[in-house]
Write a protein that binds this DNA or RNA. Sequence first.
DNA 1: ACTGAAAAATACCTGGC
DNA 2: GCCAGGTATTTTTCAGT
Lengths: 142, 142
Amino acid sequence: MEDADRRILDLLVEDGRASYTELGKAVGLSTSAVHQRVRRMEERGVLRGFTAVVDHAQAGRPLTAFVEATPLDNNDPDDVPERLRGIDGVVACYSVAGDANYLLMVRVATPQALEALIAALRARAHVSTKTTVVLSTPWERR
Amino acid sequence: MEDADRRILDLLVEDGRASYTELGKAVGLSTSAVHQRVRRMEERGVLRGFTAVVDHAQAGRPLTAFVEATPLDNNDPDDVPERLRGIDGVVACYSVAGDANYLLMVRVATPQALEALIAALRARAHVSTKTTVVLSTPWERR
DNA sequence: ACTGAAAAATACCTGGC
DNA sequence: GCCAGGTATTTTTCAGT
């Protein structure tokens, strides 16, 4: 990947609504050139899209946790990620090389909702869990 | 938070560049009303901004890991998050209620870079670490 | 690949309900 | 708090180098 593309990408991570004119000034290119590069990065898939950054605490899900999940029955076809996808509150699913098979990030409204979520994980995805609650988030997405 | 705001927020998480007209059609409001609501959510801080979604594998950092970090000397003033912030590759820092004090998400280019990063964590943030490598990411952000 | 300029779409603001 | 309309920016396309 070229240096100009990388810089454009960094700027777009900082501000996903930066205009092509702004970006052009920052990297020393015309708006058209920037536009071309952005479109190409979208086509290539390096740039997947744009999203809103939400304050989850204010948005009704103040409780974040990480859940290590391991299938209870190893004979099951491993469609665990698919099953997890349907459970509300599960924000991300990583397959990891550790004690557990999966590491999940979850966001919920209350401790009760976390309890219900963990129960749902057992019932619907057939996994055992080990949960670590997030106390605070000094920072995210550096 | 009102229902209309929540729906607008969800749509903006899905597509951070959805136009106010689109959003308005989806929630049954005029473009002006949607525009007002979005501005208010930005002012209140619920909506923190917008960012590009990057394919980190393609963007030169194919290796993701989670690092549990615990201060080596508990007498230190706890400015660990600040110190971590300056280390390249550390993407997020969570203070957690678990065996470790902090859980970090890191993204690097190679196993060698991960080794260097962990060394930097020990040297510059004075923490012991336990690392879990991510093998794949079935999905992220809901 | 980049530029510059025109055309289309969108964001943003103001007044009125 | 919502809507409608007007103006300013921005996005998008295109011909030229």
